[in-house]
Design a protein around this nucleic acid. Structure first.
Lengths: 294, 294
DNA sequence: GTCACTCATACTTCGAGAGTATCAATCGAG
DNA sequence: CTCGATTGATACTCTCGAAGTATGAGTGAC
């Protein structure tokens, strides 16, 4: 019945993610035998097998699957507790905002101008790290694409705009005012169909990583790539040799401000109010909250 | 930057709740000096003072206050991870339902009859423990009074009915069909005004604890106490010498089924469906979801 | 069959955490 | 003002458990 230790959870998550005791031990900067023993003791303690090991393969049992989910949540909660306690001790009390670079739809500056009560620290991350940053206390509030389907986060929609495709200005398709996905068959598209909203992509291990918008623009100008982006990003980055065209059959993109539902911070509340106010002013056609899909 | 250990969180919560190192150490079944050191090390590690200690008094700093909240959440998450992993290993996969005794409005039996897919374990607790039981994984789903204002829980209203007061049948007030709170001034009422819904009451340390409805009925019959209860409870427990009268100016009580918002369990979903279905059938006037107050 | 790979076991080492004894500071009683 | 009671902090020792090293054993590839 005794409590699980943080260490046990860390070890378990490492093994569950690597599915390899040796690599997991390396990631944890320890030797393999104590890790094997720790996992074995954990299974004893829970009275449940977490892994099915042959000497050649490690796989999660159903119990292991559920523990992986819950262990990540628990570790996030622990990290958040530490992080927030650290910050609560500091007198500054700045608000930490996280946001995918170049994705703010030009709203960032006016929001910050409208919200001048406390200093704001900006934490720029890859799009896959926005939600985790809210969970583990690195950030208080985020600007991100909806939907993200996380019951632990509250959100407020700021912009709902159609998605566009960036293509070379010289491309024959640029002559048309709007396009459909079918028109783009055969072109090199971003990973997957491009219909994904942009938050959930897990960090590809060692991928080429063209994260930078300017790199993407270069590729688009040379005709070697098409790129989907929300209208607000297109509007913010006009480029001479690139044409943005509306894609009719992609669902519209939503930019939202999100924060941990458990937040009781008045700074967060004030920031959200400022953000919503700025968005209303910028786009008087009121964004309706999109239902969060499950 | 190193992670907090579960042990550190447990120690901190104990001291924060007792505000007394000696008593906290006793509660933790350990000596006082190592506890003092552990807290000191924790403060070093976080770089933040958590307590203001004089040799005569211990108080939480603001950082300590926030950590207390987050630490409880984290400990719950850890307990839930262990609990759910344990259960996921067992083949039975029964659903754990928690519910304040005698508070189910007669719906429990028909709901269980409608939900016959998997066995249900019933966990009866005090009303203050329903929400914690959902948080730490002891229960999958609960029947409780709304509102409870917990962003980590989803809920569905089952019954919305007025609140009544139980009084001796011989009481002059029993001659009237409805009452107002003002009519009851001077009578001995349950703790507070009786307007509380019934979940949030923290466990009074060593209070007389008249938890049992039959004890309460005895007190009411002898005229030494008035008791508020939702109409569905009154309906379920007719007593010869007790009259139930509607209290016009108490807000109606809501019986809801609630579950962790993070639950992805099909059993929980099926149970909720069964509960809502039974409630609709029992009270065709559809319960509107009450807004959760903040 | 042999080799490479990978997890488990045996044994040792070491350090973090717990205990005991004691000190120091504060408050209240007289 | 002094003394005693209360309570948290410090000094020192000890012990148990987690980590390391070396090695074994099972499995799949060729």
């Amino acid at each position: 019945m005794s409590d699980l230790e943080t260490r046990q959870l860390r070890y378990f998550v490492a093994v569950a993610e690597e599915l390899h005791f040796g690599r997991a031990a390396e990631r944890l900067a320890m030797a393999q035998p104590p890790l094997s023993r720790a996992i074995r003791d954990l299974e004893r303690q829970l009275g449940v097998d977490l892994f099915v090991r042959t000497t050649r393969q490690v796989a999660l049992t159903p119990a292991g699957e559920t523990l992986l989910i819950d262990a990540r949540v628990a570790l996030d909660a622990i990290a958040a507790a530490a992080q927030r306690a650290r910050r609560a001790g500091r007198p500054e009390q700045s608000l930490r905002l996280t946001c995918k670079a170049d994705f703010d739809g030009g709203l960032l500056a006016p929001i910050l101008a409208a919200y001048d009560t406390t200093p704001v620290e900006l934490l720029l991350t890859g799009p896959w790290d926005l939600v985790p940053a809210l969970h583990d206390g690195r950030a208080d509030v985020a600007l991100l694409a909806m939907p993200f389907d996380d019951p632990a986060l509250d959100s407020e929609a700021l912009l709902i705009e159609p998605r566009m495709v960036a293509l070379p200005a010289a491309d024959p398709l640029a002559a048309r005012t709007t396009l459909r996905l079918a028109d783009l068959t055969g072109r090199r598209l971003p990973n997957g169909s491009g219909a994904e909203t942009g938050n959930l992509a897990p960090p590809p291990p060692g991928s080429p990583a063209m994260r930078d918008l300017s790199q993407i623009f270069n590729l688009v100008e040379t005709g070697s790539l098409l790129w989907f982006l929300p209208a607000w990003v297109a509007r913010q980055f006009p480029r001479p040799h690139i044409a943005y065209r509306l894609v009719e059959d992609l669902p519209p993109a939503t930019l939202a401000v999100a924060w941990p539902a458990s937040s009781r911070s008045p700074q967060v509340a004030a920031f959200v109010r400022a953000a919503v106010g700025v968005a209303r002013q910028a786009a008087p056609n009121e964004p309706r909250a999109m239902p969060v899909t499950t």
